[in-house]
Each structure stands twice: as structure tokens, then as C-alpha cells.
């Protein structure tokens, strides 16, 4: 959720309530002979208020699951989730007397801190990353369909190359096997290991140079693996500078009629890089939830245990 001017009333209210809570706590701590305690009625009221805030924050998830509960708009719930959760922090601190407490209470406080901090992190990345995506990823896809998009991109590029290369499309597979046999000679003559280059080496045994073969070889050796859904940032073509250089060299080594397809290949490569970037940003945008949500459940269980034992004892 983007924090904009509509959040100002919420922020002001939260700030005012925080100040009121601290003032009340200060008065209570000064007047209490034995100092502030979470077990006194004042401390427990702070605890109840803080717990109420946390419960409200947790209800956001249930609101999504039960659409019939259309109590307030999703925006209001989200704003409330943010600011009321933040309000719970001073309330819980006042309840605990700004101490960690015993074993259970320390676990609670640490879990609570992790939940709050992960939430703040999530809110922060939500302010920045979507804008980064919008400006740097014009070709962004629907996140759950990134794999599908990659596969279809690869497929469309393959068809385009096949259409142009015709019979030479599959020739790199057979020429690769021949070039492996000549690799020893190539090492002797040129000192270059063709298997490391990934490209068939133009040796003196090749009687003729085919641009289509060049194109198909480039596609199979480099572009195909990059366009697949399991490509990662370590791929050579993931580097835009290196990719530009490779495509430029390819463009120079083929005839004029093949250059449109090279443009298309380069476009596909660029789109794949954007999808790769989108995948990373998507991980940052949503990965914190893998910590935030489970910890909330932990907080719920520990909180219930704390309430039960505190009331009993």
C-alpha cells in the first residue's frame, strides 16, 4: 500500500495516542510504590489495548477469506492494519514496563519485534519497488505467470529463428558433434577450446561459412537457455552490455536478410532480462510475508499462553 496523504489522519491519531499512552505510563510509573508492572491493573489495561490492536491487525487476513464481511473498504482495513499495528508497539512497551521479562515474555517481545520490523520492511519496499518496476520493467508480466511468459517467449523466438534458418536450424547439433572430434586439432592450431566457447569453431575443416548456421548456432548455444524459465542472473545474456556486444557481433556476421530476426531475438532477450528483474523484485516485495505471517501465528500462540498463565497466576 502506498502511504499517501490519506494516511495523514491515521498517522496523527496514532502519534497522539502514543503520546497519551506514554504520559499515562509516566504518571503511573512515578506514583506506583514498587514501580511499573505488567501485572497491575494499569499495566494490564495497556496489555489489553495492545492485544486489541494486534487482533485487529490479524483480522485483515480473515477479511480476505470471508468476503461477506464487507465491513469497511479494503483501503481502510489496510490503513488500519498499518497504523493500529504501529500503535500496538508503545502500548505493549508500556505494558511490559520497557523490559523483556521472563522466558515466555522475552520470546513474545522478540517475536513481536520481528513481526513489526518485517511489516515495516514490507511497507517500505511497497513504497519504492513498484515504482522501480514501473519505470524499469515496461514488459512486466503477471507475476504468477512468469514461467508461462518465459516459455511462450522462448517458443515464439524459436519459431522465428526456425522459420528463417530452415534446414540450418538443427544443424548446430550435428556440427557440434563434429566439432567435438576436431577439438583436439583446434586446440593445437588456435589454442582455443571450442567446447568452452559454446560455438563451433571455424576451422579449416569447414568448407563453407553459413550465416543461417551462425544464427541457429547462436540461438541454441546461448539464447535458448536464457529464454527458458530456469535462467538466472549468472547467464551471459543477463548482462545487457555483454548481450549487446554479442548481438552486434552476430549482426555483423550474418547477411542483411537475417538481421530482422536478430532484432527480434535481441528484443526477446531484453524482455527476458526484464522478466528476470521482475522476478527478483517480486521476491523482495513478497518474500517478507514468508516471515511476517508465520511469526504472526507464533505471536498469537505465545500471546494466548501468556494471557492464560498471567490470569491464572
Amino acid at each position: 500500500m502506498i502511504v499517501d496523504r490519506s494516511h495523514v489522519p491515521w498517522a496523527l491519531t496514532t502519534t497522539c495516542l502514543t503520546l497519551v499512552a506514554f504520559i499515562l505510563y509516566w504518571i503511573y510509573a512515578r506514583t506506583e510504590p514498587n514501580g511499573a508492572s505488567g501485572g497491575s491493573w494499569q499495566g494490564m489495561l495497556f496489555g489489553v489495548a495492545g492485544t486489541g490492536c494486534m487482533v485487529y491487525a490479524g483480522l485483515l487476513a480473515w477479511r480476505k477469506k470471508i468476503p461477506k464481511w464487507q465491513v469497511g473498504s479494503a483501503q481502510t482495513w489496510l490503513r488500519g492494519h498499518i497504523w493500529i499495528s504501529l500503535l500496538s508497539v508503545p502500548l505493549i512497551l508500556c505494558h511490559g514496563g520497557f523490559r523483556l521479562g521472563g522466558a515466555l515474555e522475552s520470546c513474545l517481545m522478540l517475536t513481536f519485534a520481528a513481526v513489526i520490523l518485517s511489516g515495516i520492511y514490507g511497507l517500505a519496499v511497497q513504497q519504492i519497488l513498484p515504482r522501480v518496476m514501473a519505470s524499469n520493467i515496461p514488459a512486466q508480466a503477471i507475476a504468477p505467470q512468469l514461467e508461462v511468459a518465459c516459455e511462450r517467449l522462448r517458443r515464439s523466438t524459436e519459431l522465428a529463428v526456425q522459420k528463417v534458418c530452415e534446414s540450418a536450424f538443427l544443424e548446430p547439433f550435428s556440427s557440434l558433434s563434429r566439432s567435438q572430434g576436431a577439438s583436439e586439432l583446434a586446440v593445437t592450431t588456435s589454442g582455443i577450446n571450442p567446447s568452452k566457447q559454446g560455438m563451433p569453431v571455424k576451422t579449416s575443416q569447414h568448407e563453407s561459412f553459413s550465416p543461417k548456421l551462425e544464427l541457429s548456432t547462436f540461438y541454441w548455444d546461448q539464447l535458448n537457455s536464457f529464454l527458458s524459465s530456469d535462467a538466472n542472473r549468472s547467464h551471459d545474456l543477463a548482462n545487457p552490455t555483454l548481450a549487446t556486444a554479442r548481438f552486434a557481433r552476430l549482426r555483423d556476421s550474418v547477411t542483411e536478410d537475417l538481421r530482422p530476426v536478430i532484432d527480434e531475438m535481441e528484443s526477446a532477450c531484453d524482455e527476458r532480462r526484464q522478466l528476470l528483474f521482475q522476478s527478483r523484485i517480486h521476491g523482495w516485495l513478497h518474500g517478507w510475508l514468508h516471515l511476517h505471517v508465520p511469526l504472526c501465528l507464533t505471536l498469537l500462540v505465545l500471546g494466548l499462553l501468556h494471557i492464560m498463565t498471567a490470569i491464572y497466576y
Binding site: 501485572g39 521479562g101 521472563g102 522466558a103 515466555l104 515474555e105 501468556h306 498463565t309 497466576y313
Partner: peptide, 8 residues
């Protein structure tokens, strides 16, 4: 139950 006490 010492885990439940606020302080020793």
C-alpha cells in the same frame, strides 16, 4: 513453570 514468570 519458571518460563512464565516475569522475573526470577
Amino acid at each position: 513453570h519458571r518460563a512464565f514468570e516475569s522475573r526470577c
